[in-house]
Amino acid sequence: MTFRYDFAPTPFGDALAVFSHEGIVRFDLSESEDPSVPWLLEDVSRQLHAVPQADPGAADELAHLLDDYFEGVPVRFDEHLRLDWRLVEGFPLAALRVISEIPWGETMSYGEVAIVAGHPGAARAVGTACRLTPFSIIVPVHRVVRSDGTPGHYGAHPERKKYLLDLEAATTPSR
């Protein structure tokens, strides 16, 4: 199996996008100023047991979807991109699939996701699934909030979660 990678711009900096022949395998908002740093590709290579090859342009469709998203268009990424879930299994996969269904501008608590995913009481495991998702933004883990409605964290960047929630709230039609 061969894997390809490219970078896609976001307001948070360029993000690494890794693809297989089945779809996107990983979309990673880097914790670094430079997402092309070797450790990031080494981490992906370890997970995939293969070294992805650079493929400039591979993320063009994703980049267009991200542009729309960050302009406030209610994009549902999994309607436009095939997701290759190979890096997720078990309960995290079930939780992330539930999270994929949370509509634009809406939220669910970690506990609610756990219940819908079939494991009431597994709210902390939902938090772990969100933290470890291979699909930042594409699977909207930012829409999962604490039971009191406060945003909680988003990796080491809670300000990113607030930004994404505010973006969606500002462009959600009134009901």
Rank of each mutant, 00 (worst) to 15 (best):
M1Y: 14
T2K: 15
R4S: 15
R4C: 12
D6Y: 06
A8P: 07
P9S: 08
T10W: 01
P11R: 01
F12S: 02
F12H: 02
G13M: 08
L16M: 11
A17F: 08
V18Y: 06
F19G: 01
F19C: 09
F19R: 02
H21G: 15
H21D: 15
F27W: 07
E31S: 12
S32A: 11
E33D: 14
E33M: 14
D34F: 08
D34V: 10
D34E: 11
S36F: 08
W39H: 14
L41M: 13
E42S: 14
E42F: 15
D43Q: 14
V44G: 09
V44M: 13
S45Q: 09
S45G: 13
R46H: 14
R46Y: 12
R46K: 15
Q47A: 10
H49M: 13
A50P: 12
A50K: 11
V51S: 14
V51P: 08
P52S: 04
P52H: 03
Q53A: 12
P56C: 09
A58G: 10
A59V: 11
A59M: 03
L62H: 02
L66P: 03
D68Y: 00
D68V: 00
D68W: 02
Y69G: 05
E71V: 00
E71R: 05
V73E: 01
V73M: 00
P74Q: 05
P74L: 03
V75S: 00
F77V: 01
D78H: 11
D78E: 12
D78T: 07
E79Y: 00
E79H: 00
E79R: 01
E79M: 00
H80P: 00
L81Y: 05
R82L: 15
L83T: 12
L83H: 10
W85I: 08
R86V: 05
L87P: 01
P92T: 02
L93Q: 05
A94C: 08
L96E: 02
V98N: 04
I99H: 01
S100T: 04
S100Y: 04
E101A: 06
P103I: 01
W104P: 04
W104I: 09
G105D: 11
E106K: 13
E106L: 13
T107I: 12
M108L: 11
Y110V: 02
E112L: 05
V116T: 15
V116W: 03
V116D: 09
P120F: 09
G121T: 05
A122F: 05
A123P: 00
A123C: 00
A125V: 02
V126A: 02
G127L: 03
G127F: 01
G127M: 02
A129C: 06
R131Q: 13
R131L: 14
L132Y: 13
T133D: 07
T133G: 10
F135Q: 03
I138T: 08
I138Q: 01
I138L: 14
H142F: 13
H142T: 04
V144A: 07
S147G: 10
G149S: 14
P151I: 11
P151Q: 10
G152V: 08
H153Q: 05
Y154T: 00
P158S: 03
E159H: 07
K162Q: 14
K162W: 06
K162S: 10
Y163S: 02
Y163H: 08
L164H: 01
L167T: 05
A169S: 13
A170S: 08
A170Y: 04
A170P: 06
T171A: 12
T172V: 10
S174D: 12
R175H: 13
R175A: 14
